[in-house]
Nucleic acid binder design. Structure first.
Lengths: 142, 142
DNA sequence: ATTATTACTTTCAATATGCAAGCAAAAAAG
DNA sequence: CTTTTTTGCTTGCATATTGAAAGTAATAAT
């Protein structure tokens, strides 16, 4: 795990103190696109995160209140991770990063399905996906 | 310096392969707020970046086409760094990160001047600041 | 001619990453 | 039941990155 103190009062700097690494926002991305995920689901993502990194990032994001861990119904081994409201509010930033990467780094032939929707109507997409995530939050008591 | 290959085709992942660290976006932030900066200016930022990290990040961001280095008028030692158009287009993402950090991490009493403007009228702020940066680009030949 | 500034580079200890293997608890299969 | 498998981690270790401090070479100012 990593314990970084605030380098400054700048909100950008403080944000990067939490998720300024190559993995944390990918965990948030997976939760944004799929609502909930198990530990095993994360390990199956395309980028192949190492399990020690995954465990430490899940713990950090939970400590920071960005994700929360729920019991998996009828299974005491598995857990279910989801975005907290604080995590849901990271989605606009994530989408802007995705748009930038799509424009400047990705191959030109066709983009991901969710980005097509974003490009069609960004605010509608954001409202839809954030509402869905937040509804998911109210459903389960934390 | 760091040479990370694309971990996947995901635009978020590819973006983080470039600026997914605790420093790169702070360099972009400083350029966003101040238009141009010298090497020495960056070292004076509140977060106190180490000079070896600064040099490697400036090189990486230049290699990736996010910033560019200009000669400082009438001075052969100094250089002037500015955002390229590709870097200017990172501003919306940076602003979303700033808004998130401001809401969830910063002390409640008063926020930074530029964030007040953002909150008042986000699209106007973005247009203004991005236009200003882009004008700065056309002025100097690359 | 001397000193200061500027933009780095180097050194090296500390920390983080990444891969592979290990492990305990629970679940599923036989 | 009893064995095997799944699941969610933890551990060990080599390599890479970070961060603090000092060094350097070119130019600028005095």
């Amino acid at each position: 795990m990593k314990l970084i103190e605030n380098r400054s009062d700048c909100p950008i700097s403080s944000s990067l103190d939490i998720f300024g690494d190559r993995w944390s926002l990918l965990i948030v991305r997976d939760l944004m696109l799929y609502k909930t995920r198990t530990y095993g689901d994360f390990t199956k993502s395309e980028e192949k995160i190492a399990t020690n990194i995954l465990a430490s990032r899940l713990q950090l994001l939970e400590d920071k209140g960005i994700i929360s861990k729920l019991p998996y119904p009828d299974n005491k081994v598995k857990g279910l991770y989801k975005l907290s409201p604080k995590g849901v509010e990271l989605i606009p930033a994530l989408i802007e990063i995705a748009l930038w990467g799509d424009k400047h780094l990705s191959n030109p032939d066709g983009c991901l399905p969710y980005l097509k929707e974003v490009k069609k109507n960004k605010s509608k997409f954001l409202k839809n996906i954030m509402d869905k995530q937040l509804a998911n939050n109210e459903a389960n008591v934390e």
